[in-house]
Deep mutational scan, measured.
Amino acid sequence: MGFKLLSKLLVYLTASIMAIASPLAFSVDSSGEYPTVSEIPVGEVRLYQIADGVWSHIATQSFDGAVYPSNGLIVRDGDELLLIDTAWGAKNTAALLAEIEKQIGLPVTRAVSTHFHDDRVGGVDVLRAAGVATYASPSTRRLAEVEGNEIPTHSLEGLSSSGDAVRFGPVELFYPGAAHSTDNLIVYVPSASVLYGGCAIYELSRTSAGNVADADLAEWPTSIERIQQHYPEAQFVIPGHGLPGGLDLLKHTTNVVKAHTNRSVVE
């Protein structure tokens, strides 16, 4: 069995187990497998329904001669939608809004960016022009300005110390501490036991640490421990890039980060 097929099978099995364990909360999309990078042309966006009122959005972007996937989250909030992270750029984010209108038909009224990198804030200006209120932590807003990236308009308070959590509509926002970046936030959907790890969490097929220019490698494993301790009931975990899975993604990420750190020390 090929690795790609095995990865998709694991996603399907995880979703099936969740649907059985929580039949009222989960209505997993039966329309197909989780979209992969090879299936999404740059400039297009796919939506994948995880649970009743919960979707991931998947886009792709060219970077350094390669094409990478990027995940975000959409959560229903009454007759409105909360968006977590842009679709990595203005063109993708405009396509995301169009796809949401086509498939869901509810307005996106608020959006949260989970850290300051372009795959999370690139497209904020498109959201703002569409009347979406954009939010991020003060740290993310400051770092985005320093980096020359787009800056969300509103500040999220109460997320300055490791372990801080605040309720934001249908989700809980959690600051686990520094990891992929010093400002990275985690998003949890309690009604569906869905954990969105953003770039602080890796997919299972990833074996290298990737972009760690703004990471705190020493603190990252401790931050992941905080996530595990705060959300032990999480059933569906979405990484910032690639295929979702279960809580095993947290341990896998820790292993990859520690291996990278150990290699760096040896070198």
Score class of each variant (00 low, 15 high):
181 S>K: 01
51 A>M: 14
249 L>R: 00
106 L>M: 10
151 I>Q: 05
17 I>Y: 08
33 E>W: 07
146 V>Y: 15
200 A>S: 08
42 V>H: 07
226 R>L: 11
210 G>I: 15
202 Y>L: 15
136 A>D: 03
9 L>T: 10
118 D>P: 10
246 G>I: 04
139 S>K: 13
71 N>K: 02
254 T>E: 07
115 H>A: 00
92 N>L: 06
91 K>N: 09
206 R>P: 04
25 A>W: 09
28 V>R: 09
195 L>Q: 01
65 G>I: 15
204 L>Y: 11
58 I>Y: 10
104 I>W: 02
79 D>G: 12
17 I>N: 04
234 A>V: 08
142 R>G: 11
247 L>C: 13
152 P>H: 03
193 S>D: 12
74 I>L: 07
171 V>G: 02
205 S>H: 15
192 A>K: 10
58 I>V: 09
189 V>K: 01
166 V>L: 11
160 S>K: 14
160 S>W: 14
252 H>V: 04
117 H>C: 00
116 F>T: 03
206 R>W: 08
184 N>R: 01
99 E>F: 15
76 R>P: 04
77 D>I: 03
209 A>I: 06
160 S>P: 11
221 P>H: 09
245 G>S: 06
195 L>S: 00
216 D>Y: 11
111 A>L: 10
216 D>F: 06
15 A>M: 14
78 G>N: 06
11 V>Y: 10
206 R>Y: 10
40 I>P: 13
237 V>L: 06
84 I>N: 01
127 L>D: 03
112 V>A: 05
159 L>W: 03
157 E>Q: 12
181 S>F: 01
212 V>A: 09
194 V>N: 00
17 I>S: 05
84 I>W: 00
236 F>C: 12
16 S>I: 15
140 T>K: 04
59 A>N: 11
49 Q>G: 12
73 L>W: 01
195 L>R: 00
16 S>A: 06
263 R>H: 05
176 P>I: 02
221 P>C: 13
257 V>S: 02
161 S>V: 14
123 G>A: 03
113 S>K: 04
20 I>C: 08
17 I>R: 05
164 D>Q: 14
92 N>V: 03
93 T>E: 00
181 S>V: 03
252 H>F: 03
260 H>T: 05
236 F>M: 15
24 L>Y: 09
148 G>E: 07
145 E>D: 07
49 Q>I: 05
12 Y>N: 09
235 Q>M: 06
208 S>L: 12
14 T>C: 07
77 D>Q: 06
32 G>K: 15
68 Y>L: 09
118 D>V: 08
166 V>N: 07
213 A>M: 12
242 G>K: 03
70 S>C: 04
173 L>T: 02
112 V>E: 04
57 H>K: 00
217 L>S: 11
114 T>I: 00
77 D>C: 05
146 V>Q: 10
195 L>N: 00
157 E>H: 15
89 G>S: 13
5 L>F: 05
194 V>L: 08
46 R>M: 14
182 T>P: 11
87 A>K: 00
248 D>R: 06
185 L>R: 02
125 D>R: 12
95 A>T: 09
138 P>Q: 10
94 A>E: 12
234 A>G: 08
191 S>V: 07
192 A>P: 07
87 A>Q: 04
134 T>H: 04
81 L>E: 02
28 V>P: 14
147 E>R: 14
40 I>F: 05
1 M>T: 04
210 G>Q: 11
260 H>D: 09
54 V>D: 02
84 I>Q: 00
49 Q>T: 12
55 W>K: 00
123 G>T: 03
72 G>K: 01
186 I>F: 06
205 S>M: 11
148 G>P: 04
213 A>Y: 14
189 V>T: 04
5 L>H: 13
48 Y>M: 07
66 A>Q: 13
60 T>G: 10
147 E>A: 14
225 E>K: 07
43 G>Y: 07
27 S>W: 07
200 A>F: 03
14 T>A: 11
44 E>N: 15
186 I>H: 04
255 N>S: 09
170 P>D: 05
14 T>K: 14
10 L>T: 09
139 S>P: 08
26 F>D: 15
266 V>Q: 12
31 S>T: 12
55 W>A: 00
156 L>N: 02
137 S>E: 03
135 Y>A: 01
161 S>K: 11
89 G>Q: 03
34 Y>A: 08
70 S>H: 07
28 V>T: 09
189 V>W: 00
93 T>P: 01
118 D>I: 14
156 L>D: 01
95 A>E: 09
211 N>Y: 07
20 I>Y: 10
29 D>H: 05
145 E>R: 12
168 F>Q: 02
135 Y>T: 00
44 E>L: 11
138 P>M: 08
192 A>T: 07
132 V>G: 01
246 G>K: 11
102 K>M: 14
266 V>E: 14
30 S>K: 14
55 W>M: 03
213 A>G: 11
68 Y>A: 12
158 G>P: 06
186 I>A: 06
71 N>S: 08
249 L>A: 01
228 Q>A: 15
256 V>W: 03
92 N>G: 14
231 Y>G: 00
77 D>K: 05
256 V>K: 04
11 V>P: 12
240 G>C: 00
196 Y>M: 09
46 R>L: 10
127 L>N: 00
231 Y>R: 01
180 H>Q: 03
237 V>C: 05
266 V>L: 06
73 L>A: 10
21 A>Q: 07
208 S>A: 12
223 S>I: 04
153 T>R: 13
60 T>A: 09
